[in-house]
Amino acid sequence: MFARILTIFIIIFLILPVFIVIPISFSSAQYLTFPPPGFSLQWYESFFSDSEWVEAAIKSIQVGLLTTILSLVLGIMTSIGLVKGNFPGKQLLQNIFLMPLVVPTIIIAIAVYSFQSKTGLVGTTFGLVTAHTIMATPFVIVTVLASLKGMDPNLEYAAMSLGANPFLTFMKVTLNVIKPAIASSALFAFVTSFDEIVVTLFISGVSVTTLPKKMWDGVRTQVDPTIAAVSSIMIILIVVILISSQIYGEVRDNKMAKKLEETAG
């Protein structure tokens, strides 16, 4: 009982800061104050009418999508190679691939920055995408790897004994089984890139600005409520995605349960 009451307080500690931003974004005041004195859309207007903010958002989406594609391709290849391949040092190789999950980002940031400034990649979309892919691929590997390991190998044997070559087997069978894992890792990869700030700070140069970098500059100079508007848009997007995936999961579970009942009954 005691643990439950405590849990409620801790949950409030976790969520409240996230949602306090939303009322502030609708504030009619010129400065930060709470509770807001009145309702206004001025901060949303200042976001959408400022070409710098809009360009930063577009850049973030562009880099995010490219990173998602590249890290999905690399991540799926790696996962299959690690699960199906047979060679010494597999565990070590897997740990190397997953390193960016725990290695402090600042180290990756200065290493990549040093490399990119020598190769002229600083401030290019290509530079950002490759750097973000390093950060995002481990999430894809972890998710897809778990799904592949949980897969019944007989499905693939069945396909192959029916005459499918390895490529066809992968496309028709394996890919279908790991589809949910691919979907969630795509989301992971996109968010990782969309949210990446430490590496981006170093390698984006002066001309290219992503959304997090623009926010970083804004937060450092003044606590501008435009950031509250941007934040609110991002929070609402995340909440919608999370709740719809939860509902989707519940609906799917219920359907499965019903099917099982029908077959059993």
Partner: peptide, 30 residues
């Protein structure tokens, strides 16, 4: 499921958004 959502919302929210939120909350005039 509800607790999980409550944990995942901050987990998925941009780090900068959350840090900004704490700045708003904890300032002297916060």
């Amino acid at each position: 499921g509800l607790i999980l959502i409550a944990i995942l919302i901050p987990f998925w929210t941009s780090l900068l958004v959350r840090t900004y939120a704490w700045m708003v909350l904890l300032q002297t005039q916060g």
